[in-house]
Design a protein around this nucleic acid. Structure first.
Lengths: 250, 250
DNA sequence: GGTATAACTTACTGGAAGGTAAACTCTACT
DNA sequence: AGTAGAGTTTACCTTCCAGTAAGTTATACC
């Protein structure tokens, strides 16, 4: 419970490093037994399977309505097996969240290729965002925040989310400078964008008629020009008053 | 547990209607005691306070992390008192959700005033939406869906949410006809809108620097023209290439 | 073939929290 | 004064589930 977030990943099950020296009894003694090389590969795969299964279960039934035993049953094992791979239920959730968030953040860490406007780059980010949020990790990413996690876990999550938000804002800013984007309130724009995309996790299900990519395209198109009618070019052939164009917004 | 959703509101505590007749023993007997008039007013006020307190608590700590006892303590009473006003924890949540959703739906039930474009009307809906979602009921409205409610409660919620969605789509459609709105994919547009606004419940807190109304205005402004730069009129005095204007979106 | 360790299982504990029974108090009304 | 019933409490019960201890099987390595 204490150091839940510590030691993510899988540096585990190699607990024989100290086998070479037995101190605390005077002279050091070198063990004649060699260090055993563990079967890491399989362990990691299984661990990942546990995380994924948990993500799917949380996604389907919610965190508090999913017992560890259910997750285990879905993998044809028993509860303690899960505890063999993760420390506790909270860490299980945390792994799901971090997996999703890191996947979203990853492209923000790479520099923007030359010749690509900030706007184009933002669009590709959004496509990637949509893919991830529609995956099994989407629910966890979006819901975890008010599930009563330990402060240490929360700060982890908050930091990643903040990085992603900063990434979006930076692209908006750069877009303002290179002329590909124009918004009034940067912060609110990033919140609206993130909200629209995050919300996908609430309604999207595997069997949806649209793919995540198609949804992303639709959203990008919408955020492109908004709701307002474009200039009089290439409009459908209906008569079109422009009275509504100036839009008082009282 | 069975008829959770039945009998919302407060027709309660008037259980003396049968005091006039004692059948099952032959001849009917009219009771000499008159029917007592209960102190409804106070009861309703207290009940509402319970709902509000629950909403705030759920909002702060989440549904499953909030015990009935905590809610009670916040009202300076004990747990059974809560059960005097609501049947169970689930109903408590349901009341919160329905309160919020009905508040959002309400303006959709009224006809649009003449002389107001669909777009203008949609904007006023969004302002109202933002106010409600930023209230203590916002969290419940947004999160309740995957908290493992009974199917009967779920269908209640789903119906209300669907009505709200239909209301938005209808306005978008009407806006397409009266020329005040232009979108490609109606469904996706309504989802993006709802997502951006619903997401407010995730990040908005009372002490925020912006009011719900200001947030709504910012979002409306964004959804007005999107991210793309407007035509060359009334722009800030920086040089502005229009190269990015056609925006390939590959 | 023997042993260490990884990988799992069965069987349990402990505690938190939803919900209830039954008693008590307070107030309105006669 | 006396009573009915609303409103509240104390003291429970019960269930569910996270987490663990200890034992068992499988596998790699010598």
């Amino acid at each position: 419970m204490a150091r839940v977030a510590a030691m993510r990943g899988s540096m585990r099950s190699t607990g024989k490093t100290r086998s070479a020296t037995l101190e605390s009894d005077g002279e050091a003694l070198v063990s004649p037994w060699p260090v055993r090389k563990a079967t890491q590969r399989n362990h990691d795969l299984k661990r990942e399977a546990v995380i994924r299964a948990a993500a799917r279960a949380f996604n389907a039934r919610g965190y508090h309505n999913t017992s560890i035993e259910e997750i285990a049953a879905g993998l044809n094992v028993t509860k303690p097996t899960i505890y063999y791979y993760v420390a506790n239920k909270e860490q299980l959730l945390l792994e799901c969240v971090l997996t999703g968030l890191e996947r979203v953040r990853e492209p923000f860490l790479r520099p923007r290729p030359a010749g690509v406007t900030a706007r184009e780059h933002l669009n590709s980010m959004m496509r990637h965002y949509a893919e991830t949020i529609a995956s099994e990790y989407g629910w966890c990413m979006v819901r975890a925040e008010d599930l009563g996690l330990a402060p240490i876990s929360m700060s982890h999550i908050k930091r990643l989310k903040s990085e992603i938000d900063q990434g979006i804002r930076r692209l908006l800013e750069e877009g303002m400078r290179d002329g590909s984007i124009q918004v009034k309130d940067l912060k609110m724009a990033s919140f609206a964008l993130a909200g629209a995309f995050n919300w996908i996790a609430h309604w999207y299900r595997e069997n949806q008629s649209m793919t995540a990519g198609e949804i992303a395209e639709a959203f990008i198109g919408l955020f492109d020009h908004g709701l307002a009618p474009r200039a009089t070019q290439d409009l459908p052939r209906t008569r079109r008053t422009r009275a509504a164009r100036k839009e008082p917004t009282p």
